[in-house]
Design a protein around this nucleic acid. Structure first.
Lengths: 205, 205
DNA sequence: CATTTTACTAAACAGTGTTCATTATATTTG
DNA sequence: CAAATATAATGAACACTGTTTAGTAAAATG
């Protein structure tokens, strides 16, 4: 009975086809201007077909947001080879910011838009992809603390603070709230801010 | 000719009536679930009437977001009497966080939702209300730097970092991205984070 | 009072997410 | 192989959304 296995495979391929089309359209014209009908048209299926594979828009958005987290994780993984946790932490920050500006619509779905988390709550599921990435940060911070490379503080507090700081910069930029600063200066200011923050948290010998 | 003055006054009253209804509905059911038709129904006018006073939804959203900034400014003003800029900075942070959680939908429109800033760009206007509030922060930070109460750094970088840090915590909470932490512990963690950040930036004597 | 200006609205347009009865296709069974 | 069944896909509809426009009622003006 290889048929039901093929069917299952075809179902996954179809889910992926929809996800891929959605991701592309989000990237091309923004997720706000992308409708179910747009996605259906792109893959040459009826809008109703999408609902055979995704319960609703929130579930589809969750799928795309999950793809984003996988992409981010792939970019973070190589950094785990960096022995010095302090240097690793800094590089993680750079990677995070770069990811955000290279894939602003993924970032939006991952950390700003409500829909994906709405889906999570509806189905009482765990936020695995989000937690997986957060753990990279928390573990690195914890290692910095163990080796007394940064000033002592509760690990959760440190991780939360660093995450908040970087997300704050990124999300305020994405949502256009840094118009008091010239756009072309923002990248340099980001780096200066992150350098400054690293200096502040680093334990003085 | 007091008539045109009365007409002007009535026009302002009508704009305010719409704004008030919109604000109320946003607070009651969230801005996402509030439509122009809802607002029209609430004030017992036709939906088309709203378009005689606001060009489109973005302009209406801008109006509500402006009301939010006025409210925040009113809460910040009393703090300007605090002589010690470091203490003032800390209290500003507390006030900011409290404002965000007491008026999450205002906060959303002020710092997260795109619509109000879209309106700004459409009409090539300045973000007065946003800048007014940001100046309070920047001036306080500058004063801290002058009096050497915090570690030396470019004033803009310091203001940007502090703003990003607090906004990050608040927006990640509002958009439900802190589900790795128990909800009831978040307030205490916020305070610990802010205490920690104050300690980090404070100049050692 | 007649005329013009103003304020308002009903109805329509084009779009949205979503559901469901119906059809076409594929698989299984006699 | 043909008939019966299960699966996949869709057209059409529903209840919404923001927005525009033609037409109407009321107020201001001469």
């Amino acid at each position: 009975m290889g048929i039901i296995e093929r069917k299952e495979r075809e179902k996954q391929e179809m889910k992926n086809l929809i996800l891929e089309a959605a991701s592309r359209l989000f990237q091309e014209q923004g997720y706000e201007k992308t409708s179910i009908r747009n996605i259906a048209e792109r893959i040459e299926y009826s809008p109703a077909t999408i609902y055979l594979y995704y319960k609703d828009k929130d579930e589809l958005f969750y799928g795309v947001h999950e793809k984003g987290f996988e992409l981010l994780f792939e970019e973070m993984k190589p950094l785990m080879n960096i022995a010095d946790p302090l240097e690793r932490l800094r590089k993680m920050g750079d990677t995070y910011v770069r990811f955000a500006f290279e894939h602003p619509d993924y970032y939006d779905l991952m950390f700003i838009v409500s829909a994906p988390i709405e889906n999570l709550h509806k189905h009482n599921e765990e936020w695995d992809c989000g937690l997986q990435n957060f753990c990279l940060l928390r573990d690195t911070v914890a290692e910095c603390l163990e080796k007394q490379l940064i000033k002592p503080v509760e690990p959760d507090i440190a991780a939360m603070s660093i995450f908040s700081f970087v997300h704050g910069m990124v999300s305020l930029t994405i949502r256009n709230r840094f118009i008091m600063f010239p756009k072309e200066q923002l990248p340099k200011m980001f780096e200066a801010s992150m350098d400054n923050m690293m200096n502040l948290i680093t334990a003085s010998p």
